[in-house]
């Protein structure tokens, strides 16, 4: 029998609901602010000449021989990235402080911050914010000779995965203040902040540099090889407008 032909059961009036008892909030839940008003706005500090225009048809190309058409389309989008419960980290970047998180139960410490513990048996224990010492050591690294459009001009650069202040994780960021062929595994590094007026609340507000007193080892065949690989990259970058 089709469901449509079934007679709907008679409805009894629903009893008036009891006022809901005040529920205890599970401390593992992340609070959600009802409303956020930003009173310290820097909306256009770094905007430059970037305009949001959506679809913009820049032109077209036609092949008479192959009868093929190509459209030049530009599209852009301004995003409103809300850091929400990660805001403590972003505020720290603006203030020149490095904040990570730590599980109050197992003690594991994280940067980049994890807002819940990663151990399954901790059942999403919320972590606490902890201020980190702005130092660590290089876990691994590479010398970039090519990158995305926004990073081409600073090639070649060293991207290092650094374990900061005893964290259980490593953070990737640029290692400066060293020739690209000189970094070493396990070398000690320090956090160096961008000038205050250039900070944007993002990971690039800081970079790593060798810890004070660290000196690179002497040139060796591998360093020579990397230097040789970097030479044309330096030349190529000079040709960029």
């Amino acid at each position: 029998m089709s469901k449509k032909t079934q007679k709907a059961p008679e409805k009894k009036p629903a009893p008036r609901p009891e006022p809901a008892p005040k529920k205890a909030v599970d401390p593992r839940m992340h609070p959600i602010p009802l409303k956020v008003e930003y009173d310290d706005k820097h909306t256009n500090d770094f905007r430059g000449d970037v305009k949001e225009v959506g679809f913009h048809f820049a032109g077209y190309e036609w092949s008479s021989k192959e009868q093929q058409l190509l459209i030049d389309l530009h599209y852009d989008q301004l995003y409103y990235w809300k850091l929400a419960e990660l805001s403590k980290m972003g505020r720290g970047f603006l203030d020149g402080e490095l904040w990570g998180t730590q599980c109050p139960r197992c003690g594991d410490k994280f940067f980049p911050p994890r807002v819940n513990c990663w151990r399954l048996d901790e059942e999403l224990q919320r972590t606490d914010w902890v201020r980190l010492e702005p130092q660590g050591h290089v876990h691994t690294f590479t010398i970039a000779g090519w990158s995305g459009k926004s990073s081409l001009k600073r090639l070649p650069f060293v991207l290092a995965y650094v374990v900061v202040d005893g964290c259980k994780t490593a953070i990737a960021n640029e290692l400066r203040g060293v020739k690209p062929w000189d970094p070493e595994f396990k070398m000690p590094v320090k956090v160096v902040w961008a000038p205050k007026e250039e900070r944007r609340g993002v990971i690039t507000d800081f970079h790593f540099e060798p810890a004070d007193g660290w000196k690179p080892g002497p040139m060796n065949p591998e360093k020579e090889r990397i230097k040789e690989l970097c030479a044309p990259v330096y030349e190529w970058v000079k040709t960029l407008k």
Partner: peptide
């Protein structure tokens, strides 16, 4: 993770290179 690696200038060949460098050694 665009909040971290990608902003720092990373693209996939760079991440893989960092992993490969240590693996190689």
């Amino acid at each position: 993770d665009t909040r971290y690696e990608a902003l720092a200038g990373g693209i996939y060949p760079i991440y893989y290179a960092a992993m490969a460098h240590k693996f190689m050694k």
